[in-house]
Design a protein around this nucleic acid. Structure first.
Length: 298
DNA sequence: GCAGATTTTCCTGATT
DNA sequence: TAATCAGGAAAATCTG
């Protein structure tokens, strides 16, 4: 029996449980990946399972879709997580469990950046962030770091790899405290550090492992593959105008971070670096996205 | 305008 | 020989 055959989610914590069962008879068309059809049913804990109750509760399960994110309560967020993880991302109940730290009101959710998502629930966070409906949060919200400068928005790296302006504006209060500690001693600017740029590439299946990969995740050692391309992307991101960024200049910027403890060199290994003790946000449960590749035969 | 942090640019020399 | 690495130095950029 597959884990997908009978999944029970405590959708509303107290109201009811939803049974997500699988109808393997329905196969998706036009895809190399066989995606099981998910039939979401509701099971009344009191044994009342007449059709009208099911209908109402199914409707309840979908209510989050009718509200802007900033009006979601924790239940709505939980329903969105289940729907997205199971139906959209075709992941397992285990993944739902790992995303429980994201169960919070929609307003809080909107304040989180992509990196916040990743930090809270690993690599699945990156994918969940993409699925979060991007409605505007209330204008009255506190926006820390309004001067957060994100020097690009239209290049190929802006979509997936790191913070956008909206991300930066949505740094949560919790994250604010952490960020203040992390950036103590910095002169208040919040441009992206070059080591953060590399870290974000490693968190991004679009670039990891094709452009950059973990050589030894346990030792935080990574290797650049398309070093010139990565340097060019960095230059594009920083909107270098004078001359195009090349690997020579890019590597100089990396070496600057040796003193800061965020990067270290690896002896006799070309294009190989190690994140230092000062580097944060490296956590992932799927280095080089090997699990994902096996799962989806990528 | 200033100081500080970070990056860019250019460079020389060493190593692979 | 080319690519990469290491690091000095100065200039540039950005922030509070």
């Amino acid at each position: 029996m597959s884990i997908f055959d009978h999944l029970f989610f405590d959708v509303n914590c107290t109201d009811f449980k939803s049974e997500v069962s699988l109808n393997k008879d329905n196969e998706t068309q036009g895809s190399d990946i066989e995606i099981p059809h998910l039939d979401i049913k509701l099971e009344d804990p009191n044994g009342e399972s007449d059709d009208s109750n099911k209908e109402n509760r199914n409707e309840d399960l979908e209510n989050w879709r009718k509200k802007p994110v900033n009006q979601w309560d924790e239940k709505d967020t939980k329903k969105w997580l289940i729907s997205t993880i199971i139906v959209e991302l075709r992941e397992s109940y285990d993944v739902c469990c790992r995303s429980e730290k994201l169960v919070m009101p929609g307003q809080e959710l909107l304040r989180l950046s992509k990196n916040n998502f990743i930090n809270l629930c690993g690599t699945i966070g990156s994918r969940l962030f993409e699925f979060l409906p991007k409605q505007s949060a209330p204008k009255t919200r506190h926006i820390p770091f309004q001067r957060y400068r994100v020097p690009y928005s239209d290049d190929e790296t802006s979509v997936d790899s790191t913070v956008s302006i909206s991300d930066a504006e949505s740094v949560s209060n919790i994250d604010l405290a952490r960020t203040k500690v992390e950036r103590k001693g910095r002169s208040g600017r919040h441009t992206l550090w070059v080591w953060e740029f590399l870290r974000d590439l490693l968190h991004n299946p679009k670039y990891c492992p094709e452009y950059i990969y973990w050589k030894d995740y346990s030792k935080k050692i990574f290797c650049l593959v398309k070093n010139k391309e990565i340097a060019r992307m960095w230059g594009k991101r920083k909107k270098i105008k004078k001359k195009e960024m090349d690997y020579d200049k890019f590597s100089r910027a990396l070496r600057y971070h040796y003193k800061k403890g965020t990067l270290e060199s690896v002896d006799k290994e070309r294009l190989t670096y190690r994140f230092g003790p000062a580097a944060t946000g490296l956590e992932t449960d799927d280095p080089n996205f090997e699990k994902a590749r096996v799962k989806y035969q990528l």
